[in-house]
Amino acid sequence: MGIFKENPFGHILFLKKWLIRILGIMSHQRYKGFNKLEVEGSEIIRALPDTNVLFVSNHQTYFADVVAMFHVFNASLSGRDDNIKNIGYIWHPKLNMYYVAAAETMKKSLLTKILAYAGSISIQRTWRSEGKDVNRQVKMSDISNIGTALNDGWVVTFPQGTTTPWKPLRKGTAHIIKRYKPVVVPVVIDGFRRSFDKKGLRVKKKGILQSMVIKEPLEIDYENESVESIIEKLEYAIEQHPSFLKVISEKELLAYEEENKKREWRS
């Protein structure tokens, strides 16, 4: 690799590699020391093509979720089976990995700008701006940038567009799927909301068992399935469909809370 070789967004790969290495080393203890990350599905990661893969996931913090995915995906590609032991995997990170994030979030500080350089596809939110509800048109350049990233590698997106659970998925994700026809891999995470603050930058509580389940790619009829059908399929896949709430009784909710308490572990 030439030292000044760039990706399609003009980011120097040598610099991006070192940023990922440094951020990976700095953040590893958040998932392997202060808290414990339980992983399922590493073999699915290793079976994926190198490009045109879209990961769809529920969302619990601004940054801790996607940083954990960078760890898990790179560890899986390096041969780790459902664990992120031995951080040596971060020395040769997958550089064509991206994640979708709100542009206004990624411009707020030096740290967020560094995180953006490490792999963000920054988009303008159509429904929210500076803490207020808005209603504006999708920027076609944002859609094109996601397509460019898919053509170059893997993209992580959080189709709810918010860290609040059970919110409806944004239809834009389905339009992207129909347009670019990526391999769609669902990811379900838990424990991050209890471990970190909302931004995912500060450890809020130690001794929490986090989990990440990588599921088999979805079967999608890109030409004939409707946007609504794809959205419903995604909602079930990332376990955010409204029916998950409707079938939970008060007794089951209490049991669920008890289970959450049991998820805490002691080193």
Rank of each mutant, 00 (worst) to 15 (best):
N96P: 09
N96Y: 07
M97W: 02
M97P: 00
Y98G: 06
Y99A: 05
Y99P: 04
V100L: 00
A101C: 01
A102N: 03
E104C: 03
T105V: 15
S109V: 01
K113I: 01
I114Y: 13
A118C: 14
T126Q: 09
S129Y: 13
G131S: 09
K132L: 14
V134I: 14
R136P: 04
K139A: 00
M140W: 07
M140R: 13
D142F: 08
I143Q: 01
G147E: 08
T148M: 03
T148V: 12
A149V: 06
Q160S: 14
T162R: 01
T162Y: 05
T164N: 12
K167V: 13
R170I: 03
H175F: 07
H175Q: 07
I176D: 03
I177L: 11
I177R: 09
K178A: 08
K178G: 06
R179Q: 09
Y180V: 00
K181Y: 08
P182C: 00
V185W: 06
V185K: 04
V188P: 00
R193L: 12
R194Y: 12
S195E: 03
K199N: 15
G200V: 09
L201Q: 14
R202L: 14
K205L: 10
K205M: 02
K206V: 05
G207H: 07
G207Y: 08
Q210R: 08
Q210H: 03
V213K: 14
V213W: 13
